[in-house]
Nucleic acid binder design. Structure first.
Lengths: 256, 256
DNA sequence: AAACGATGTTTCATATAATGAAACGATTTG
DNA sequence: CAAATCGTTTCATTATATGAAACATCGTTT
């Protein structure tokens, strides 16, 4: 198969398309389920799964379902991209989560989306829970709005050109001009709120993390249910989150 | 290619063998370097890398070297194996690392080796640093000796049958009988020490983590340079590590 | 400045491996 | 108990993967 002028390897593409199915919420898949989901022949699917199993990329459990295997865990941990951001954010996120008692996320803008690099979950049963390594919309999350607000004008206009502002709730900002105004305000006060823009009942507050050149390298957010949120807590939350951000910044002054 | 009675997909195997090269310490590889390392033709290697790049499995940096890419980070974070062990160990490891000021590891026995599931590194410059997702010998590390000590007799004898006890330092236990005696002692006192068995200058202390059926599900270890180690600190270290272990056990009572 | 060595990349003929329909056995469902 | 669904195997056919040769680029050496 050709991409641009390049021939690519179709079998390898098929194997990874099988793995892509695991990006959905379902963790275990049978042979024919995967074949149906991907449109591949069940014999081809079976053979690819056997190959991936022999490589520890997937493993088969007791009822003949395949799950992602330990070799991916090993390779996933070796990915150097954003590694120092992930490593140096860990302790600060835990501290923030413990003090505020809500889930804390740490993320960057990647491919016009928020990429979650790290998190510390709330110890409470009812909490926001996301998947590290996964992507989320930027325009309707506090973490994403912070990352956009501190982006260059070029970057923002590229974003608006390429991303459709769909509504998720009646609070979602879907008008470009309104979003630009919102981003200017966020830049000015140096924090963002998501008051049920992505999901009803979900509140989020986020601030930027800078390197020594005052460039935003990531964002920290705290997210929880609206039932636990009180407007008068915003200032004290900001104070706690900022402490965490300073701690991360201390390690990442030279981060580009 | 046949394995047992199964035909496997050679192209997919080649693609993953390329990725296996990244398990070494070198993080970025050129086309011909990888071809040489794997023994594959440089054209084949080039084509496989292009395919992997199109899938975000690898990415090319500015000087035409390939590094592991974000899709592996995403897939790696979705691996369900040992996920609750990884999630629930995080805070406790950070606390132990902060109090003892040395690197803390959390691991299990997998394929007759220690698999590092989590870690919290010492804040000091001179520290033990390992790679999460990587494997280490069990017979000459504290974490591994704990995991072996609390394994069944069958498991231990299978281990000794299949693993060659090579010496890494003059302190490495290479005699099966001596190792068995050592494991009995570890089981009795419920902790292990590695006094420069794996590497000169490296000291390690580890304890087991149990589920509610008193089965060992993981081990926690603290590792540091011998220059910072004092025998009189063992008891206070154990006390701190045990607190962390109890915290983890509280979440994992039902872990099988 | 030219030659050399090393790199990544492209082309195209050939051989190999990937593919998938048909069939099978086992298990689950109605 | 029959039907439906699953994972798995076989083997003929076809499509794709392969790799040698060649090219362009860049850095190094003379």
């Amino acid at each position: 198969m050709k991409e641009g002028s390049k021939d690519l390897n179709l079998s390898v593409i098929k194997a990874f398309k099988l793995l892509d199915v695991y990006l959905t919420e379902k963790q275990e898949w049978g042979v024919r389920e995967l074949a149906k989901k991907t449109g591949y022949n069940k014999t081809t699917t079976y053979r690819l799964l056997s190959t991936l199993e022999s490589l520890d990329i997937v493993q088969k459990n007791d009822d003949d379902k395949y799950i992602l295997g330990l070799k991916l865990f090993e390779l996933g941990n070796l990915v150097p991209v954003y590694k120092s951001l992930r490593n140096y954010s860990r302790t600060a996120l835990d501290t923030i989560a413990k003090e505020i008692k809500e889930t804390v996320h740490f993320g960057v803008l990647s491919n016009n989306q928020v990429l979650y690099l790290n998190k510390a979950e709330s110890a409470l049963g009812l909490k926001v829970s996301t998947q590290i390594g996964s992507y989320q919309h930027a325009y309707c999350t506090a973490i994403g709005k912070v990352l956009l607000a501190f982006s260059s004008a070029d970057k923002i206009s590229d974003y608006l050109k390429n991303v459709k502002l769909e509504a998720f709730t009646s609070n979602t900002i879907t008008n470009s001009k309104a979003l630009l105004i919102e981003l200017e305000q966020i830049k000015e006060r140096a924090y963002a709120l998501d008051m049920e823009e992505l999901e009803l009942g979900l509140i989020c507050i986020a601030i930027p993390v800078f390197n020594k050149n005052k460039e935003v390298i990531a964002s920290i957010s705290v997210a929880g249910p609206s039932s636990r949120f009180k407007a008068e807590n915003v200032q004290s939350y900001l104070s706690i989150i900022k402490k965490g951000a300073f701690e991360i910044e201390a390690h990442l002054r030279d981060y580009k």
